[in-house]
Design a protein around this nucleic acid. Sequence first.
DNA 1: TGAGATAGTCAACACCGTGTTGAGAACCGG
DNA 2: CCGGTTCTCAACACGGTGTTGACTATCTCA
Lengths: 210, 210
Amino acid sequence: MAQRGRRSARVSGDERQDAILVTAEALLAGRAFDDVSIEDLARGAGISRPTFYFYFPSKDAVLLALLDRVITEVEHRVGHLPRDFESDPAGAWTRSIGMFVEVFVSHRAVSTAAIGARARNDEVRGLWSRSMQSWVDFSSDVIRAEQARGAAPAGIGAHDLAVSLNLMNERVITAALNRESPAIAETAALDVLSTIWIRSIYGSDNPGGR
Amino acid sequence: MAQRGRRSARVSGDERQDAILVTAEALLAGRAFDDVSIEDLARGAGISRPTFYFYFPSKDAVLLALLDRVITEVEHRVGHLPRDFESDPAGAWTRSIGMFVEVFVSHRAVSTAAIGARARNDEVRGLWSRSMQSWVDFSSDVIRAEQARGAAPAGIGAHDLAVSLNLMNERVITAALNRESPAIAETAALDVLSTIWIRSIYGSDNPGGR
DNA sequence: TGAGATAGTCAACACCGTGTTGAGAACCGG
DNA sequence: CCGGTTCTCAACACGGTGTTGACTATCTCA
């Protein structure tokens, strides 16, 4: 429950913690994680650097907190993804991939920072893994079901296929968002990725088509 | 030309420079780039830290030098890749992707470090881009040719397809080499990747098959 | 109301890694 | 053997991280 009664003379701890998170997200939109110092975060939240350590044990912990909210959203959204791929497989995959793209785009600063920090920080890596794993579990379940009902050819294992396609999504989308080179246009991503998914899952452009 | 005559009393500059490179590659095999300090490189090469700066302006420059050799090899190998995909498209793609995998595997320390440093360093990003661009150019040329001769369906642009598939390779292979999770087994990579390439380029498992 | 617990704050400090400076040693070609 | 170039490093400056300890504000319960 939120603060009751009159506002206390002093800014509350929760507000400060939140101010750090808000500052971090704002600064991360403009520059890389490494280029944001704890001093920057503290100043942004209106506190001194040592006081920052009262709220977070490190800069990475701030990223972790930010990432945690994204992961929660991912798991929630993946859990509610429809699994009825019989009637319109192509459309259903496109909608699922569209959600993946959407999550990335709406949290691009955090995603980019997390991908960068992943190599260095175990917890970031673990959290990121977990969210990728949700997507992989979802997709490999569906691929397996499609293979079972004969709509998709066997060939390679559903799990390996799901992992590869999801890693492709991750990489292609970050490349597009950060305007890397080579990369594809952000606007083309969903279309291109869907086509690759569908062709490689079904071995055809038009699964279930007449 | 190599050193002539008797070995000089003092170790030559070129040897020192090389010793730094060798040390860097050795240390990078065991730990992340960020965890290797200039002090470590200097000690490994038998010099003091300030002397390191006589040979390289920064730690990144060492990585750049290492990466440069890899890029040269990539461009050379890509340039010599056969482009006769008519008779055995599936086999030809598998051989090309096999070469991609091979380069990664044989320079895994440098590749991993470069991918990590890419976000931070413009020159690393540029160099990496260039090598990815060689692969992309090669693959999009071949895809375009396959589409032109009617072996592959149009659907999505050859360039976007080539970029996406190459980025998938990069990501899937690094995940496998670093034993990330989710990832596929290193031994399965070539098979899985080839299948996805062939299905998404030709819309079939068996292009040109009877 | 006032004594102790709890939350919050920060100046000052210790540390580590990077990069610079300036003085000098070793070697080379004339 | 002398002048220039190559090479070397102690000592320093700096910036970022994380810690300490003392201090202030607020809350709570007798």
